[in-house]
Design a protein around this nucleic acid. Structure first.
Lengths: 222, 222
DNA sequence: TTTTTATCGAGATGTTTTTCTCGATATATC
DNA sequence: GATATATCGAGAAAAACATCTCGATAAAAA
């Protein structure tokens, strides 16, 4: 029997439910329904129900779910109520941007140190987080029991840095480099594929233009 | 008949094939096979074949595909050989990071101007791109026929800015805000859901820990 | 109190996506 | 020139995922 039988598609939707629920709560709404969530986020209401079911939250006929309960259930299910310390490697523009995000703590991740190969960047503090020479990562990661590594280095350095992370006991990597890392299967890798996103965008735009200019088919032609 | 019958999953994989092929070319390799690409990127080789088929590229038995041809086919299919001008709104940390990325031009997108609501940020140049007050966006976007908008503003401003973009004739939005935009169906929206990514990461890590500490099930309990 | 209604949750059905299977073919080897 | 082999591409099978259907139920309305 599989340890993790929750569809990954569900895992990807839960955070967006979560943020929507936070906004509902801010507005003072106390209860909501699968139908409301689905309509706001463009997901079929039965799908929303199935997704929420995996968190263990129960709704009541005619009233739906209490917003507070749902938020708590999702947090618990995603383990977002337990913050893990993370190291970030690559204190360039993107790395700096991530260091500036306060919101990640709400998503279970606190960046406690950043690393960079360039001595020019090391030694300073960025957004209150110290930037250290990358050579110091292995020892520190081991001693601090760091579980999460965030990879914001250029593509050609990503594999080597990832291996260093894994060697230092890091178990999960949030990878922003446009590369598929080759690591032991036990390591959890989550890619933020910016270019995939751009591929979809660009293709859809091209198809739309082609359709608008009269041609019905989207193929590349005979 | 649907205009666009290519699976979105395929569109998302093509960019990663593309980057892998660029690296192969750099190393001087002239031909490759679906099996090689699949092994490197963790995709089944028959899946790679189906994906490449949509670009129109043909392989030859025993030799595979010419790397150059494949690169060109993917570029053409994604329309990455035609660069579109884009406006970015939200010149904070993340926006600045994106402005610094040279690689997007290779993916069909050139950021020609940035906008920000804060007068403190407007007027300067960031990474060689001028930052303007957001009020100037509609007029400029219309006059320059801007098709792509990049949204890197805080969540609570995202909807309003998106509407401004659409009103100014922008047809596709690359959205980094953790919110589902409510826009006319004709508008192409591509979300970069950083938190979805973190949700998957966090959940998998939690499941792994639970599994390691003896318990077999990953549920939230009875 | 009875009826109506909004919502849930479980199971059946349908669709999309991925993987498996197998015959065809171009190159390389004998 | 004949045989072997790596690779392709098309179609079948399997798996994953989304949608539809329907009975149950708690609250609200009559």
């Amino acid at each position: 029997m599989r340890v993790d039988s929750v569809p990954e598609a569900t895992l990807r939707r839960l955070p967006s439910y979560y943020h929507y629920l936070l906004r509902l709560r801010e507005k003072g709404q106390e209860a909501t329904s699968a139908a409301q969530i689905g309509a706001a986020l463009g997901v079929h209401h039965t799908q929303v129900r199935k997704d929420l079911a995996v968190t263990g939250s129960q709704g009541r006929p005619k009233v739906g779910h209490r917003v507070d309960d749902l938020i708590a259930s999702i947090e618990e299910f995603l383990n977002w109520n337990n913050v893990s310390d993370a190291f970030l490697v690559g204190a360039g523009h993107l790395g700096t941007a991530l260091l500036g995000y306060a919101g990640f703590e709400r998503a279970g991740v606190r960046i406690v140190a950043a690393f960079d190969a360039s001595p020019r960047r090391a030694g300073r503090k960025v957004q209150g987080v110290p930037v250290l020479p990358v050579e110091k990562l292995p020892d520190l990661a081991r001693r601090m029991h760091i579980a999460i590594g965030i990879l914001t280095v250029p593509a050609d350095e990503a594999q080597a840095v990832a291996e260093m992370m894994v060697g230092a006991g890091i178990q999960a990597i949030w990878n922003f480099a446009p590369i598929v890392l080759d690591l032991p299967e036990a390591v959890i890798v989550e890619d933020v594929a910016l270019y995939s996103s751009l591929g979809v965008l660009s293709r859809k735009l091209a198809v739309r233009r082609k359709a608008a200019s009269g041609k019905g088919s989207a193929g590349t032609g005979p």
